[in-house]
Write a protein that binds this DNA or RNA. Sequence first.
RNA 1: GGCGGAUUCGUCUAGAGGCCCAGGAUAUCGCCCUCUCAAGGCGGAGACACGGGUUCGAAUCCCGUAUCCGCUACCA
Length: 513
Amino acid sequence: MTENNRPVRVRMAPSPTGSFHLGSARTALYNWLWTRHTGGKFLLRIEDTDQSRYAPGALQDITDSMHWLGLDWDEGPDVGGDYGPYVQSERLALYHQWVNWLIEHGHAYRCYCSEERLNALRVEQQARKADAIGYDRHCRFLTAEQRAELEASGSPSVVRFAMPLEGETAYTDILRPTRSVENRKILDPVILKSDGYPTYHLANVVDDHFMEITHVLRGDEWLNSVPLHVNLYRAFGWEPPIYAHLPLILDPGGEGKLSKRKKRADGQEILTYVEEYRDAGYLPDAMFNFLSILGWAQSADNDLFSRAEAVAAFDIHDINASPAALPISKLDWMNGQYIRALDTPVLTELLIPFLSRDLGIAEDALRAHPALPFIAPLVQERIKTLADAASLVDFVFADKIDYDPTMLIAKGLDAAGSLAALEAADGVMRSLPFTEEALEPALRALATDLGLKPGQLFGILRVALTGKNVAPPLFGSMMALGNEETLARIEDAKTHLCKLVEGSPSDRGEPTP
RNA sequence: GGCGGAUUCGUCUAGAGGCCCAGGAUAUCGCCCUCUCAAGGCGGAGACACGGGUUCGAAUCCCGUAUCCGCUACCA
């Protein structure tokens, strides 16, 4: 399993520049899965080498999102480990040491070219459609005197890697065929910036080496950098890790990188950050399962599986190298599956923050509310996300409900007929214990006695109690409302119907749907 | 422009030369169940990007073409 015969050590290396992207989450997940499958170690390393893009709070958001998804790490800035520090800005001395080593051994050099020169160079290259666009290696061939002069004048400088000028570099990604590139096409990239911070290329190679990383599973956008990284390893005399570049997650239309500022075909917003999915009411287990199947299959004929099953079956060699459009409808379905599998008390607990947020009721008040225990069973098989619940049960928590009274007129009946049915139902209900077991058969029998279909009678009651034509099951709704409120709402409905009857004395008036 | 990657039902995928006139899932459509809505059950329609090879035989191998995506920064 471990092609290089070392215990598996992999890492997730986010840069704290923003919230945790869904694509990053999947990368983290596959890394995690690989270590849990192999019994290896999963490390979290923070790549904060770009001071200009540093976002305070991003790190917290990233770790929160990973925790939420259930991805725990064995070594990292918060949990420690033998290979620290795990934050790159705290490892600057190490990078300087190895950059100096490269310079001393002729694998790197200081470059004093100005931004203006570099820009002009790029513009010129683009204009003549040059084969390779990049640095012209100008400073690589400075004489010792020129160099000394530049240093003496205090010119700012960066350090560039001196690529071999001839030959090719073959590189392997376990998900793709081995390829090779001409070394001269890699134009001496910057490895140490003028502010003293390393670029990704250097920091990444140095850290992966000293942290004894065996497998690098990272985003596809790094694939073109592999030959550079391989050359860095060679210059140092180190062994490169095994690479697997993970395909991008595309937007639901499959038109490009998943990103903000895009809308779905149905006008819905496309969620791109893990925290957004959390706030939209998706469950961590469902997200975990969902992210897993974006580029990997646990089995040929089943999409629903637990973490343990994923861990048991996972193999990086089975990852699909083609990019995937985000299948939102499948996520919705899957989340519904996970919600339905929950124990009712657990669902209730999960629902509280969402109901509180969406209904504007304090969590404490919600917990103390007599209707609370009835809510989860009412919505469990009707919601795809936790956030769907509020609009289904808002009538339970409303002080009063508003609806068009004509909705109380049942199909096939007029106002008077509906009123008679409702009054009969009211009478039956008052004579019985307020339980589903007692009420449902009795009202069914009543419908038959009145020559109505259950749906006609129940429909009147549904509108009376909820103000809606579409609502959760009737008798469960009654229990949530409680005896008193149920009868009060029926009372109100009777009043509405009375007015309708008086208002339209034409006895055979067609009911408005 | 250069370089790199990818290409199986709308979408997520299974598939590593005969098991595939391509399997699963989701979405969609229909039927059943049913107090509405769901959930559930059953069924339908739906794909190997295109063109050449190689082979007795190709979704699977090779070569082109097309399309999409990525990289081409003192960002990661």
